[in-house]
């Protein structure tokens, strides 16, 4: 297959490109003037290089001719931080522009990389199972700016799907880890340099190893007849935050940890909201009960759908996956 990939120079994208090339596909990779093209090229073998092409451009300025003749689009590109407006430019308007172009080019499969964070977990009780049947977040503006933008982007794609303009498959990975990415994430706590405010500890971390994630995405590109479906990608056995941190601190001796027990997260968030209001926003409401609930509630996760429909094999367990990182 001839596959157009956005975000191929990013952390996840590099692995997806490698996997697609290894599976024998041709890859056209959208790159910006500042993209680290060499870093991607160097991961590709001599034999595969003729099948890797670079397309200079930007999401917002794509034209249908760039997609002419390609069988599928794999949309991995996204801004990960910044103000809400800037995130929307890449993650919402970017999706809108891309889908307009794929519709014009008649692309047969669009795989959108979304995020596990898009679910509405407020209806779930502690230790309930989160799977693809969970509804999407109804009030995304109350979440952090990145999640808000990813959700809005995914919704744009579903609208296009429902309008019959986009043969869509959505992938929702958990927190992606692997070589080159610090596995300490906000699912464990709030990290300020050498200081970590550990939030709870008993919650399982919804992590996914990058190579397995890339393999899942490659399957979503090629598996026939799965349009209109979403798949969560996570490791087989997830580690608890406290176990992960115990392991992680062995390799990071200088980390200072202030623990906030699970029961204290709610009151702390309420205090943050109260103080933020009282102080007219002198300190913003970074922690709200709503965000905390979505971030640190202990849940179970299921990847049965990806396993059975895509034939995906996850990384068996996170604790093994993070060894040596």
């Amino acid at each position: 297959m001839d596959i157009f990939v956005t975000g191929g120079t990013g952390f996840l994208g590099k692995h997806v490109v490698a996997k697609l090339l290894a599976d024998g596909h041709t890859v056209r990779c959208l790159v910006r003037p500042t993209s680290e093209v060499e870093a991607l090229r160097s991961t590709v073998s001599e034999e595969q290089r003729p099948r890797l092409h670079f397309v200079p451009g930007q999401l917002q300025k794509l034209t249908p001719d760039l997609l002419a003749g390609c069988d599928a689009v794999c949309h991995i590109a996204a801004a990960m931080k910044g103000a809400t407006a800037a995130l929307f430019v890449d993650n919402v308007i970017g999706v809108r522009k891309l889908l307009k172009v794929t519709a014009e080019a008649g692309t047969k499969r669009v795989v959108l990389i979304s995020s596990l964070a898009v679910y509405d977990t407020s209806g779930l009780k502690n230790n309930d199972v989160l799977d693809e049947t969970c509804p999407l977040e109804p009030q995304p503006q109350l979440r952090d700016p990145y999640t808000y933008s990813k959700l809005a982007g995914e919704q744009v794609a579903w609208e296009a799907y429902r309008a019959g303009q986009c043969p869509l498959v959505v992938i929702r990975p958990g927190v992606i880890y692997g070589p080159g990415r610090d596995p300490l994430s906000s699912r464990v706590g709030l990290n300020f340099g050498k200081l970590l405010i550990k939030m709870g500890g008993s919650q399982r971390l919804p992590y996914v190893r990058v190579e397995a994630c890339a393999a899942g995405i490659a399957l979503a590109v090629t598996t026939p007849g799965i349009e209109g479906q979403a798949f969560n990608l996570l490791d087989g056995e997830l580690v608890r935050a406290r176990t992960f941190l115990r392991y992680y601190r062995r390799g990071h001796r200088g980390l200072w940890v202030i623990p906030v027990p699970g029961w204290a997260i709610g009151p702390l968030a309420k205090f943050n909201v109260w103080y933020s209001k009282r102080s007219h926003g002198q300190i913003p409401p970074v922690l709200t009960p709503y965000k905390c609930n979505a971030m640190w509630k202990p849940l179970q996760y299921s990847v049965e759908k990806a396993k059975s429909v895509l034939g995906w094999v996850p990384q068996p367990n996170t604790l093994d996956g993070v060894q040596g990182l």
Binding site: T84, A85, F88, V89, V92, I93, R96, Q141, Y148, S149, A152, V156
Partner: peptide, 12 residues
């Protein structure tokens, strides 16, 4: 001009 941007500002 980009309605998505107006929507996010209005919502927040």
């Amino acid at each position: 001009r980009e309605r998505d941007l107006a929507v996010q500002a209005a919502a927040r």
